[in-house]
Amino acid sequence: MSVVIPCYNYGRFLRQCVNSVLYDQPGIEVEVIIVDDKSTDDSLTTAREIELKHANVKVIANDVNLGHIKTYNRGLDAATSPYVLLISADDLVTPGALTRAAELLEAEPSVGMVYGRSIDFHKDLPPCRTEQSSWIVWRGADWLRHRCQSGYNVIASPEVVMRTAVLRATGGYRSDLPHAGDFEMWLRTSAVSDVGFLVGVDQAFHRGHDRNMNRTMFKSGSEKGRLIDLKQRWQSFEVVFDGVGRGLAEGALLHKIARETMARQALEHINYAYARGFRDFPMEDFETFAKEVDPMVEQTRLGRRVARRKRLGMVSLPLHPLWALPAAHWRLKELLRRWRRAKIGV
């Protein structure tokens, strides 16, 4: 299995990441490809030291900083094994993760990618589940339909192992989707192959820290970040259904579902902001996006509700008493979405 590790100024995390894929992966021959994107810390020095110690580790050093997308693709282009994992240098895989993924891919030739649950952590590694009980194989179009209906990504990224032949057939990461490149990749893969989910097992550790790209580049957690996320997810759907998804028998219907979902999500953010009295929320930007995606969104039930709330305005209460129930409903939907992701992968 090829493991591609892009690295930019993550030298302090690199050894732990590499060790997670080299050890405790029984039955797997691993090819590790570290791609240093002209780091300004000790990343390249650390990578070279690891390369000298392990014959199956190769280091590629960018002459100039290419950015994460081109760095990803450079590493993936160098992969030579039938299966490939792309994992950031600040993340890790769990013991046996590569073994479990390879077993599913060997048993299910129709599957183009396999994933399990990813655990978020900050400092010490939390306990993880490594005893696999079963797996689910989703028909690609069915998995894609779930994504169109929810609009959300259910994969953090380090928990995905892809079939290299499928990756080669569909292409690498897109430079015009710097925030949602992973999401678009999963959508694209599901349009041409089935998707495997490892049930009841943790496949990766996703590290949270102050220098995460989502925080520094894409303003994760802020209103601006939420709008960037909405726009990039919608662009991902557009790209897929204008490309490989066009050949699906139900492609036009799925595209329509995705359009309605993404417009609705933008209005739900506005709705929730009114319910919580968030006066500084950029309502106009979210509403403009919703109308651009689906010009008919104003005629929907949610569209009419948002228009009504705009007329009534906000009150200076933490939660408007008339809108407490819709806000609670919105929160319940979020909890249900997370539960489905953990249990069945969608």
Rank of each mutant, 00 (worst) to 15 (best):
V161W: 04
E292D: 12
E106L: 11
Q149N: 13
A249F: 09
A61M: 10
V161Y: 03
F121L: 09
P95V: 07
Y83D: 04
A290D: 04
V154K: 11
V3D: 00
D229R: 13
L254W: 04
G116P: 05
Q265N: 12
M1R: 07
L52D: 10
A156Y: 11
G221Y: 06
R331L: 12
G67H: 08
W138A: 06
Q132I: 12
R304K: 15
W339C: 07
H209E: 01
G75I: 00
M262T: 03
M162E: 08
H146R: 12
I34A: 00
P82L: 04
L144W: 10
G116S: 05
S157K: 11
E106K: 15
E250R: 14
V57K: 02
G247L: 02
V32K: 01
G151A: 10
W138V: 07
K219Q: 14
T46L: 12
D142P: 06
A107T: 11
R139W: 06
S175P: 06
W138L: 12
R308P: 07
R168F: 08
D63S: 15
V166A: 00
I87F: 04
V32L: 04
R147Q: 15
M213E: 09
L187K: 08
D41W: 13
D90V: 15
W330G: 05
C17K: 05
L22S: 05
A141G: 10
H255G: 10
F241V: 08
L14D: 08
S157I: 07
A156S: 14
K53V: 09
S222Y: 01
E31K: 00
T170S: 10
D63Y: 09
K58G: 06
E260H: 13
F197H: 03
A252L: 14
V160P: 05
E238N: 07
R340Q: 13
P326M: 02
I87M: 14
E108H: 13
E298M: 13
I34R: 01
R100L: 15
A97Q: 00
D285L: 10
G243D: 01
Q25G: 06
